[in-house]
Write a protein that binds this DNA or RNA. Structure first.
Length: 866
RNA sequence: GGGCGAUUGGCUCAGUGGUAGAGCGCCUCGUUCACACCGAGGAGGUCACUGGUUCGAACCCAGUAUCGCCCA
């Protein structure tokens, strides 16, 4: 028997027969709904996908067999920066929103990947053309993912799928935003925020990544009115023109006499106060810090808490503003600023350091240091902080207005949610507890969901941001850059008395945080929505608890006043053999389709199923080989068992099982069924698999060997009661084992099921222990274990004698522990035939505690080799 | 700096108070009888460390070390 071709055969059979299609006539209590993670289609496929999506499929298949109607849709996350970058490289274009749309546009390249097309060589195209190319490319990416998922055997209903950029998703995201706005949960603010100068976009707290960044400490002199120097150490001397205060720790002895006085900045000669604040770190640098607009997030905190002035010198392109700021009023100061105006921070730093050196305000030479800087997770330059008008959604990070009590409420939702494993809840709690601002959702990108509003332009041509023009929910989705708000005409765009569209799009999380609403048909298909929402399960990786999980909880809490789901199943990382997280940059990524082809889908699923939720797992080909062996064993053992005529007996009749060994085996299986069911219900698929697998190997190695002669019977005469017993027990056991293994090995179990059963094993009911217990009739499952050990002892004798297992014993006396003798005696006939020991006798030995021992034996002469 | 998780045979991992387990790998042997993508047998561990609780600790408690991650 072979596993070859099972994936193709059953994959298409399930597709044609609609095995996994969702019956939407079922009511909420009959449904198990899953908020499947929409993969980022432009990202690469990797084994981590296969790993975690298998975990979800195990749950889906178990619940389906338990009788639930499983709502298991798939989405694609195509919205956002990764797609934009891929389109730029693939087609050799970049977006310039000022250009007009060009119908029938043909991009300069097709299929180019990465380095071949430099940024400077990318052709600028209109936003609409750019978005069209994004859509074209993601279709291709989706096909690759779908092919992988089908090959892996995910029991997804492919008729329910969505893209986070499709019209329905856009409408949902915009509608949810407008509802947030109406309730005061969304607001715009002119505020300092993190800004990526490379991508020219604002970045939210959740997208930050602190990294080490090399720099230099510069020891710089400020001057007291009497001329005394006060030295600070800074890694960002180019921000000296933006200084608003010097700040030291309130308990710092060295600076007590300075608090409340002022100093003047070097070069620019601006007067600033010396203030005390506990965030100043006495043992860092000189212990007194230069607070600027804004060098880092601490500056922002000082600015807010100490009500400092705003003196911004950085513009959004990462250069110093070209006009000399008005707070620099000395002639020399203005001349110094002119030297750095318009330069990048890097060049401006060089200029300032030169000037400081010349003026004597640089004490010593800059010393190298490593500092922690905030980066956009996808960027490679430290983030700057710039002040701009952006939209926010309340998430408990600030407590005023509609944010009052929100943090506590969201922490409460975390308590309400069943995390698997439970300890993952602390990730959520740490994050919610540590938020220090609301959720910034504005992004200055192109391929995203538009923020759905316009602003009036006053008669004198000023944009009035305070009174946005909102669309009616019925017309969503809208694109404010091309659609015209009600009551206006297209030619009023940008004109006095007219309107302008909001140019920004929403953060991708602002859409994907609504995946339960999008997949469930919120407000679009209310009949479906009430059957699936709130959902049962959110499966996802531990790395996006702070982003995806949290933001989904926020949106559901605000819109529905409930959790979006009852359970969150958190998968761990895949580690390479050196215990490092697998990543593309390390070159240790294996293509998942190749894995499935090399080892078979059941084998790869087995590997994934062997890892518990929340636990990092090693990428281990060995584990896949074990899975493959198990799948093949299922085929072969089934063929063997069915070959005795087990299938011809029709529905197995529990009363036909009369032999102690058969009853004992079924008693053991009943226990496995009960424990495995409980394990699956507790989201512990690993335990369920381990129990089932262990039993299955005992079934093959011991039970099948012990029972095979009896099951064969004596040819064509009517089977004896003992033979019927064996056949009935085999049929019951096989039927049960196939169903227990079906979630992990969907292909091999379905293949065997098709040999002798109607329909799909994946729609068969999950086994219960009732009939098994009835057949076991209270028999002790230890009969099988005792007989197995006795058989092992007979095998050991042959193994040590280096003879074939088929070599008969001329005589044999086996000593078994006294307490086990009765159990063993009951299976003596089976032992005699399996051990080829027709005259085997059993004696008790009070000295033995565990393993039986051969007391006396004689083996037949080995057959001559020929 | 705070927190979470991990530490068990060469490897990957089970095992939440009662005489250390599995699979892989290794060694020995066998096999046209369901399975060579095989079967049988065997060797191999003072459960990271130090204390404590207990009749009894891999397991509970306190602390230490190392690794990974989250937050600051």
């Amino acid at each position: 028997m072979s596993l070859e071709g099972l994936e193709e055969r059953w994959g298409s059979a399930w597709h044609e027969q609609g095995t996994y299609s969702f019956d939407r006539t079922r009511t909420r209590d009959e449904v198990y709904s899953i908020d499947t993670p929409p993969p980022t289609v432009s990202g690469s496929l990797h084994v981590g996908h296969v790993f975690s999506y298998t975990h979800t499929d195990l749950v889906a298949r178990f619940q389906r067999m338990r009788g639930k109607e499983v709502f298991y849709p798939m989405g694609w996350d195509d919205n956002g920066l990764p797609t934009e970058r891929r389109v730029q490289n693939y087609y050799g274009v970049r977006c310039d929103p000022t250009l007009p749309y060009e119908p029938g546009y043909v991009p300069p390249h097709e299929g180019g990947e990465g380095k071949s097309i430099k940024a400077a060589d990318q052709v600028p195209i209109s936003r609409r053309n750019f978005v069209e190319l994004c859509e074209r490319l993601t279709v291709e990416d989706e096909q690759q993912f779908e092919a992988l998922w089908r090959r892996l055997g995910l029991s997804v209903d492919w008729s329910h799928h969505y893209q986070t950029i499709d019209a329905r998703s856009r409408a949902v995201a915009q509608k949810a935003f407008l509802r947030n706005l109406a309730r005061g949960e969304a607001y715009q603010a002119e505020a300092p925020g993190l800004w990526d100068v490379t991508f020219q976009t604002a970045v939210a707290q959740a997208e930050l990544e602190p990294r080490e960044y090399p720099g230099h400490f510069h020891r710089i002199a400020f001057h007291r009115p009497d001329g005394e120097a006060v030295h600070v150490e800074t890694t960002r001397p180019e921000l000296v023109p933006a200084v608003v205060a010097l700040i030291a720790h309130p308990d710092d002895e060295r600076y007590q006499h300075l608090f409340g006085t002022t100093v003047r900045s070097p070069l620019f000669d601006v007067e600033v106060p010396v203030l005390a604040h506990p965030m100043a770190e006495p043992d860092k640098g000189a212990g007194i810090a230069m607070c600027c607009t804004f060098g880092d997030l601490t500056d922002v905190q000082w600015w807010r808490e100490l009500q400092l002035p705003t003196r911004s010198v950085l513009s959004r392109d990462g250069r110093l503003v070209r006009e000399t700021p008005e707070w620099i009023d000395s002639e020399a100061g203005r001349a110094h600023y002119a030297e750095m105006a318009g330069k990048t921070t890097f060049s401006a730093r060089t200029a300032v350091v030169e000037a400081l050196r010349a003026s004597g305000d640089l004490d010593g030479e800059p010393t190298p240091t490593q500092r922690m800087a905030n980066f956009f997770e996808k960027g490679d330059k430290p983030l700057e902080i710039v002040t701009s008008r952006q939209w926010y959604v309340r998430n408990g990070g600030r407590s005023e207005g509609a944010g009052a009590g929100l943090r506590e409420a969201l922490l409460g939702r975390g308590q309400e949610l069943a995390f698997h494993p439970d300890f993952m809840r602390v990730r959520y709690e740490n994050w919610v507890g540590g938020l220090n601002g609301d959720w910034l959702i504005s992004r200055q990108r192109f391929f995203g969901v538009s923020i759905p509003l316009w602003y009036p332009v006053t008669a004198d041509g000023e944009v009035d941001h305070e009174h946005p023009i909102l669309p009616d929910e019925a017309v969503l989705p809208v694109d404010p850059s091309s659609d015209v708000p009600a009551g206006y005409t297209a030619d009023q765009r940008g004109e006095p008395g007219g309107f302008v569209g909001e140019a920004d799009v929403m953060d991708t999380w602002a859409t994907s945080s609504l995946s339960p609403q999008i997949a469930g048909g919120w407000e679009h298909d209310p009949d479906l929505f009430e059957r699936v929402f709130p959902m049962d399960l959110r499966p996802q990786g531990q790395d996006i608890i702070r982003t995806w999980l949290f933001s989904t909880v926020v949106r559901s809490h605000l819109e529905h006043g409930s959790l979006p789901w009852k359970h969150a199943a958190i998968s761990g990382w895949i580690l390479d053999p050196d215990r490092k997280k697998m990543s593309k940059s390390k070159g240790n990524v294996v293509t998942p389709m190749g894995l499935l082809e090399d080892h078979g889908s059941d084998a790869v699923r087995y590997w994934a199923a062997s890892a518990r939720l929340g636990t990092d797992a090693a990428f281990e080909v060995g584990q896949m080989k074990i899975g493959r062996r198990l799948a093949i064993k299922v085929l072969n053992a089934s063929k063997f068992a069915l070959g005795f005529g087990a299938a011809e007996a029709g529905t197995p009749e529990p009363s036909a099982v009369v032999e102690p060994l058969d009853r004992a085996m079924l008693a053991g299986l009943a226990e496995v069924v009960e424990k495995a069911t409980a394990a699956y219900e507790a989201y512990d698929h690993t335990r369920a698999l381990e129990l089932t697998e262990t039993f299955f190997w005992t079934f093959c190695d011991d039970y099948l060997e012990l029972v095979k002669d009896r099951a064969y019977g004596s040819g064509d005469v009517t089977p004896t009661e003992a033979t019927s017993s064996a056949r009935a027990a085999l049929a019951m056991a096989l039927d049960t084992l196939l169903r227990l293994l079906a979630p992990v090995l969907p292909f091999a179990t379905e293949e065997v099921w098709s040999w002798w059963r109607e329909g799909s094993v994946h729609r068969a009911p999950w086994p219960t222990s009732d009939l098994l217990r009835q057949a076991a009739a209270g028999t002790d499952s230890a009969h099988l274990e005792v007989a197995g050990r006795a058989l092992a002892t007979l095998r050991k004798v042959k193994s040590e004698a280096k003879v074939s297992m088929r070599t008969p014993f001329l005589r044999a006396t086996l000593a078994v522990p006294e307490t086990r003798l009765a159990l063993a005696e009951a299976t003596l006939a089976d032992l005699r035939s399996a051990g080829r020991a027709p005259t085997l006798t059993l004696v008790d030995d009070p000295g033995l505690t565990d393993a039986p021992q051969m007391q006396d034996h004689e083996l037949a002469a080995p057959e001559p080799k020929g």
